[in-house]
Every structure is written in C-alpha cells, then in structure tokens.
Design a protein around this nucleic acid. Structure first.
Length: 593
RNA sequence: GGUUCCGUAGCUCAGUUGGACAGAGCAACAGCCUUCUAAGCUGUGGGUCGCGCGUUCGAAUCGCGCCGGAAUCACCA
C-alpha cells in the first residue's frame, strides 16, 4: 500500500515547485506523526520552507495544506498550528489498511527470499567453567531477538555460538574436582552438569585464597604468595598437559565439558533458543596463525626480537597489539581473526553481528582494524552489538564469589512468581494442571524476557533480585494479557463476520489503526539498529492503546452490527501484531491467562 | 592518564534522522467490576532533561568545555 508519508512528501514537493518555483530536497520535507494533543495524523513541519515561501509559517502551511487536500482524496482535512501543518488521513485509507493483512509486513509471513542478504550472528558464547547467569541471559535474548527481527526483514540469518571450552579457568574447575570431588557426577549429586562444574570453580577459588592466606602468615609477601600458590601452579601444569594432549587430562576435560553442555542445552531449551552451528575454541584457537604469518611476510605486521608478532595501530590512534606470542602461540585476537576468516569462507556473509558485552568494545574495534589491514574487504561489515552489563544493587556480579543471579534459579523464580500471582488473582482455576503450568511458564518467562529486552541494549542495567520483575504496567505479562483478552473476544465472536464496512471509525479506532500502520517501520528500524527495545516499547504502546479502547467501547455489544464487524477486524489485527511482535522478542502469548 | 559509552520524575526506563507545553511504568494517594478477562481503566502530586557556553527560527537530541559513573588500554579470554 501507498505510504502516506511518501505521498505527503511527493505532493509537498510538487506544491513547493508550483507555488515558489524551487525544487527542494526530500530532507527539507519533514513528515512526522502528529502529536496527541493536536488534530491530525501526520504533520509537515513548514519552518524549513519559509525561506522559499517568504511568508509567515501560517500562510505557508495554509497554502500547502490547500494543495494537498486538493490533489489527493487520501488526505481529507488539514489545520495549521504555528509552523506545523497537520493532515488528517481519510478513513477509507485506514479501512483499506485493515482489510489488508496487517501482520503480513511482520514476521513469518513474507516469502523466503533466497537472494536475501546473509547475516551471521554470534551470541551466548559461554565459558564452560560455570553456569549461565543473568548477563548471559541478556546476551542470549538479544541475539535471539535480533535474529528474529532480521529474519522478519527478509534477511537470511545464521545463528552461531562460540564456546570457550579451553584455558586456565576450565583447568581450575577440573583440578578442584580432582582434589575434592570424590568422583561426584551430575547423576550422583543430582546437580545440573554446569552447576556441578561451577561449584568446583568456586571451590578452587576457596582453596587458592586459603593457600595465599597461609603463605602470607608464614611471611611471604602478598604478590609472591598469589603467584606461587600450589593450586595455581597445578592448574597451570594441567593447562600445559591439556595443550600437550595428555590423555588423562583430555579425558577429564571431555567428561566435565559434556556435563556442562548437557546443562547448557537444558537452559537454552528453556529459553527457547537454538543455534545453527556451535564453534568450540578448542578447535579454533589455533586458527589465525597462518593469516598472521602471511601478514608478517607481507610487511603489514612486524616482529619483535623475541619473536612475538604485533600490529602497529598508531595510525588509528591506538596502541600496538600482540597477535602471536614469542613462543609462537595464538592469543584471543588471533583466534578471532581466524574464526572470522573461516566463517566468511563458509558462509560468505554480507554482515556479521557479534553479540558481546561492552567490556570488549576495544577488542572488536581492533579486530575490525586488523582484518582491514590484512586486506579483507568484509572487515567493515562486522558489527559489534555491544550491550551493557547487568549489575546487582551491591555492585558487579562475581561468579567466583558466588554473587551471581543464576539463569536457572531466576527462571524458576519467575515461574513460581507467575504461579503465585495467578493463584492470588484466581485466574486459572478452571484449567487442568498441565495448562496452568504452561501458562505460568509463558507468563514468567514473558516477564523476564520483556524486562530485559525493553531496555536499550547499550545501557547498563541494575537488577534487584528482591524486587524481582514486575507483572503490572510496562511488562511482558501486560502485553500477554492484552493478547489473551482479545483472543477471548474473538472466540466469543467467532461466528460474526469481520469487515471494515462503511461506518465511520471513532477516534480510538483510528488511533489503533494508525499505530499498526507504523509496525513495519518499527521492524525496519529495529533491524537497522539491531535494537529489539524499539519493538518492545512499540508493543507496549499498542497494548496500552488497545486497553483504553477496550475499556471505553464494547466490541461484541456495539449498537450496530457493522460496528461489531469493524471492531472484530480491528482487534484481530492488534492480536496478530502482538503475536508476531512478541515472537520476535522470543516471547510466547497465551490464549488465556 | 588515553579511548569509548552512559547521566531524563524518589526508583526503573521511553523519547526514529534537531521541532509544537518532556512521556510511560513502579511507588503514594483518590476513584471505576450485575455488561466482551480489574495481570485492566481513570485522576492527583512529582522534572533547572548532570552543569555551562555555543550553533539554529527551534536543542533532552548537534559541537566544545567541565562534573559524576562505567568499561577498556595484558605474551587472559
């Protein structure tokens, strides 16, 4: 359908040409939504045109408004307030819009375009020495939602995970388990695998701290005590053995990682997310070395006397960056260079999104620069979706000290809160246990996911476990509730035909329709900026608008049959947009709640 | 110290490329269920948009300088 903003711009351009004989650029013609307190649907800001009209804002607006209403029957009225030309869209446009499939512009309904741009998106990226926590949840929800939004915009999306399954931190868990574990397994302990391994990571830290403390008591200075703690020495020794492929160490590593993956899989499933492919750093950590050596031989990089290889980034206003250690081994950056190259070879992506916390802004800035230096033209198509940390009221989360909001615990808590709420409100009495459980799960998870996603990803957020997540107001359950209400009405009015008819729409009906008109723009903008919070807040506004309408006007008991049909058509569209939008946030909507 | 990001109501957050008196939710208070789900709706109070200067017809939004907070600047990942 013709977009009204485009129409206004085109006609205004003509009008300006006709009246003052100048061709203006598109960006001079600013069209925006009319503010609530004024009459109209769209507003043309006339201030920028005064230099051509050489008359007052009012006169300029009048002149343009007159031209527009004359030239098209889609704009029925206008008024001028100060320098703002407010335009009223004719209702037949809104009805036409309602008759079309409004949600088709959104997710899942657009035909698959095989030539679509290909996007690779990496998210989650956990370490295998501890369970997932709230920070991972933010990462995962962002990655998943952005994937859905990009897919809805017609892109081909490949979701990948990169598991950091090697390194000293894993050895610490392994070592503590060997020392204190007594062959404890997930089965024998009843603990989820990732939690079991995380427990020994915490245990390692305790042992380490005790050893440091007692060394200091024996007169060793702190720094030395920290460096020479026996348990740290053993962990390093274990890492050396791992790198040397010592079978015993590898077997232990294999076993404990398997426990962790089982645990992760459960959490992912509960969050409702999947990946197309999982990369493991134990496979990729040696990648990149050849590329770096090639860069060295081409003189792009340089070598120090000790044999280490560096990139000079001074021309970018940055420092020098190490790429190969003096012993020839790779560092994190080397690995990411190699992985990016590998992924491009495999997938030929048009862009690659990394969902990684803002603590790594520098890393990704440098990654792009180095790839560019090495001559990869796709280097500027990497995008770091950098999100802020989730902090607790008392400060940063510290998994070593056990001061974390565990992902699994949090989900349990959300669901039990949902159960408690629905019981207090006497909501689900008529349903059997299975259905009650399902709804409570949907609502609890909806509250959690919406809570995280409605906030702009860049911002740090504080999470107060005591206050937990709300179920009223600007929340997931509010939107889910709105959906359930609409579905209930639709079930009762199943037999009634839905049609836009010829009755005039009232103010609220127009407001809802106009809001839904914005939906594709919201998706587009959310996709362009990789920002699900735009969508989340849009859905809230839509739900709020619906609830006002619902309160003020009866749908099924409207005085005239035509009005009933119109309203059914209208609210069904609202429900479909809520459903498709929430799906893009990874949130399920219940038929009843 | 360098770089990057953030600073909007008591709290949590919105505020598309600068535009019409800065908006929600929570919390507080006051109302609305014999009518489609009250997890809802309505109203009241609450703001020097960190501070200052500048650009502009117009600045929460752009520029500069301060103040406050976060991250980062490893032969860790």
């Amino acid at each position: 359908m013709q977009r009204i903003e485009d129409l206004i711009r085109t006609l205004s351009k003509e009008a300006v040409k006709a009246a003052w004989d100048v061709s203006v650029e598109e960006d001079v013609l600013q069209v925006q939504k009319t503010r609530r307190d004024f009459e109209g649907d769209f507003t043309l800001v006339v201030f920028p045109l005064l230099r051509y009209s050489k008359s007052s804002p009012e006169q300029t607006g009048e002149s343009l408004g007159g031209y527009l209403t004359e030239q098209t029957d889609l704009i029925s009225e206008y008024n001028v307030v100060k320098g703002f030309l407010n335009l009223v869209v004719d209702q037949k446009y809104w009805k036409q819009l309602l008759d079309s499939d409004l949600s088709a512009v959104g997710y899942g309904k657009s035909p698959v375009d095989t030539d679509a741009s290909k996007v690779m998106i990496e998210f989650s990226s956990p370490n295998t020495n501890k369970p997932l926590h709230l920070g991972h949840i933010r990462n995962i929800l962002l990655g998943h939602s952005v994937s859905k939004i990009l897919e809805a915009s017609g892109l081909q999306v490949k979701k990948v995970n990169l598991v950091n399954d090697r390194g000293i931190h894993i050895c610490k868990s392994m070592l503590a388990w060997k020392m204190k574990g007594k062959d404890e397994t997930p089965e024998s302990s009843g603990l989820k695998g990732d939690h079991l391994v995380g427990k020994y990571y915490v245990k390692y830290d305790q042992i380490y701290k005790e050893q440091v403390k007692s060394a200091i008591q024996e007169g060793v200075i702190q720094k030395e005590a920290e460096e020479t703690a026996p348990v740290l020495r053993d962990a390093r020794e274990m890492l050396r053995k791992w790198e040397a492929d010592v079978p015993e160490v590898r077997a232990l590593w294999q076993m404990m990682n398997t426990w962790v993956y089982d645990g992760f899989d459960q959490t992912y499933e509960r969050l409702g997310i999947t990946f197309h492919k999982t990369y493991y750093e134990s496979d990729t950590y040696k990648l990149g070395k050849e590329i770096i050596l090639k860069g060295l031989s081409e003189g792009i990089l340089y070598q120090k006397e000790d044999g280490s290889v560096w990139a000079n980034l001074e021309d970018e206003g940055l420092d020098h960056k190490l790429l190969l250690r003096s012993d020839g081994t790779s560092v994190y950056m080397t690995q990411d260079v190699g992985t990016a190259h590998q992924r491009y070879s495999e997938f030929r992506f048009d862009s690659h999104v990394y969902v990684v916390g803002n603590e790594q802004n520098y890393h990704f800035q440098v990654l792009a620069i180095i790839l560019k230096k090495l001559g990869y033209d796709w280097a500027d198509r990497l995008f770091h979706l950098s999100y802020g940390m989730v902090d607790l009221p008392e400060g940063k989360m510290k998994s070593r000290e056990g001061r974390v909001v565990d992902a699994d615990d949090l989900m349990d808590e959300m669901e039990s809160t949902a159960r408690q709420m629905s019981e207090e409100l006497g909501k689900l009495g008529e349903f059997d246990k299975e259905e009650r459980d399902r709804i409570n799960r949907q609502v609890g998870m909806g509250a959690l996911k919406y809570f995280i996603l409605k906030v702009d990803a860049r911002k740090n957020m504080t999470f107060d476990p005591r206050e937990s997540v709300d179920f009223n107001g600007n929340t997931g359950p509010f939107i889910q509730y709105t959906y359930a209400r609409i579905r209930s009405v639709l079930r009762k009015g199943e037999a009634i035909s839905k049609a836009s008819g010829r009755m005039a729409m009232n103010e609220k009906e127009v407001a809802l329709t106009r809001m839904m008109y914005e939906y594709p723009d919201v998706i587009k903008e959310a996709a362009r900026t990789y920002n699900p919070s735009l969508l989340a807040n849009f859905l809230y506004d839509l739900a709020k608008e619906f609830n006002q309408f619902y309160h003020d006007h009866s749908i099924l008991n409207a005085e005239q049959q035509d009005v009933v049909s119109l309203r059914l058509l209208l609210v069904e569209a609202v429900s479909r947009i809520i459903e498709s939008g929430m799906d893009m946030l990874g949130i399920e909507v219940p038929e009843r709640m």
